Computed example of a mutant assay.
Amino acid sequence: MKKLLCTFAVIGALSVGTTAFATVDIGITVRSKPIATDSPPIYDQGRVLVPIRAVSEALGAAVDWDAKTDTVVVRKWSQTIKLTVGKKTAATETLGNNSSSSGPISLDVPVKAVHNRVYVPLRFVSEQYGYKVEWKNNTVAIESPLSDKQRDALYTGDLAASRNLVMVAMFTGAHYEHTPLRTLHEFEDYSTAFLFPEGEALRFFTIEGNETATYYEYKDDFLVATWQAHFDGTIGDSFQLLLEEKLKDRTGPTPKIDKPLVFYSRGIAGDSSTEESGLIGLDGKVTRIGFEHTVGGSVTDSSGKLTVTQPDEVRKEVVPIPQN
């Protein structure tokens, strides 16, 4: 939720009342590209404030203005933020796959209306949306949330290491392009399977609880779920159901599966867990390479070697790598 609020820090030219504040000769860039705006940053109460719409459009956020309540509503992915002129808090709502959250976020200074433009504190951008903000030659530079080292590891590093990074990111920092579908766990199945196109780490499917499929892609250094579906029924192998598109409740056209899929899955039931890894051919044939079953922390059954890559697998991404 916090990571989304920053969108507001960067969003909006809106018709509202006017108050006088000191303007400052500061430019704004997003990922090193200058942002065109007729409203420069302002200086108020020891804080630099930036115009909302100018930055939001550069980040792809949608903005609505309610003149009756002097409220800005910003929407990006499945997250919504509301800011009201004169208030020192922002109302937020974030919809997730299996949960949602909402609540107020405090601002350093109240939201300002200056010369028919809405302004929010500069710090709001970096802390709430996930971007890094730096001062560069009298310019507010909004940069990637990833360091150069992180980007190298993610985009061009070892394939196994990159896949492990994105699997963690799926649980801790993914965004949703559409309203997320819920995984109900009707049969108490708490398994998660990751399916990577052969040679890739930057796009992949997950299958949760044997009932919900999600397709993730990296976009501008953020992990985004761009498609989801529920399986048509709970009987049958979920891998096969995905390949045959026996799905319902889709959030768009099903992504094309044009390569064999390397899979890694882990399921938990009580004090036991099961891990598997292997390859799924385009014909649906599943070749299991590794398996391990654990009860109470002790391995009770295993075979092969658990791995998130195939032997001699060569990295070959198709997702464009964004420029810094």
Rank of each mutant, 00 (worst) to 15 (best):
D108P: 03
S277R: 03
K87W: 04
A67K: 12
L95E: 03
W227H: 12
A201S: 11
S102K: 14
F291Q: 07
G267I: 04
R163G: 10
G86Y: 11
P51H: 02
W77V: 04
V125Q: 03
T287W: 09
P197E: 13
K285Y: 09
F124R: 00
V299H: 01
L181A: 03
E313T: 00
M170C: 11
H230E: 08
K76I: 14
D301C: 00
F231T: 05
Y218S: 00
Y129S: 15
A20S: 11
G270D: 06
D44V: 12
S272N: 09
Y119T: 04
A90R: 05
F21C: 08
R47Y: 06
G267M: 07
L223P: 10
D258R: 10
V224H: 12
T234Q: 12
P104N: 14
G290D: 08
A193H: 11
D189P: 07
Y264Q: 10
R47K: 09
K248N: 07
D249R: 11
P180A: 14
T274Y: 06
E245T: 02
V120G: 12
V299K: 10
T251V: 06
S15V: 04
T274V: 15
K136G: 00
T23P: 00
A58F: 09
V109Q: 06
E200F: 00
V55K: 01
E211N: 13
E57S: 12
R53Q: 11
E177D: 13
F187M: 15
T37D: 05
T294P: 03
E292A: 06
V24F: 02
M167E: 14
I11P: 02
H178T: 15
V50A: 05
V118I: 10
P320Y: 11
V55H: 01
V118F: 04
H178C: 10
M170E: 15
K136F: 06
T94A: 11
E134T: 12
L195G: 04
H293S: 13
S298L: 02
K285T: 14
D44C: 03
P51C: 03
A153L: 10
V72C: 07
T179N: 14
T206F: 05
K112S: 03
M170K: 13
Y119W: 07
S15C: 02
R266A: 01
N324P: 01
A67F: 05
G290A: 09
V308F: 04
K87T: 12
H175W: 15
S56A: 15
A9M: 11
P110E: 07
P311E: 10
R250C: 13
L202E: 01
T287C: 04
V286Q: 08
S303R: 13
P322M: 02
Q79A: 13
E244Q: 11
G284A: 11
I268R: 05
Y190Q: 09
T89Y: 03
D221V: 09
T89E: 08
N116D: 14
V24H: 02
V118D: 08
T7L: 10
G209H: 04
E245M: 00
E177C: 05
V63L: 02
A161C: 02
T92S: 10
G233H: 05
D249C: 10
P110G: 08
S100R: 07
E143Y: 01
G304I: 02
A113S: 13
V24W: 01
Q323F: 00
M1L: 09
P51G: 02
K256P: 00
V73P: 00
N138E: 12
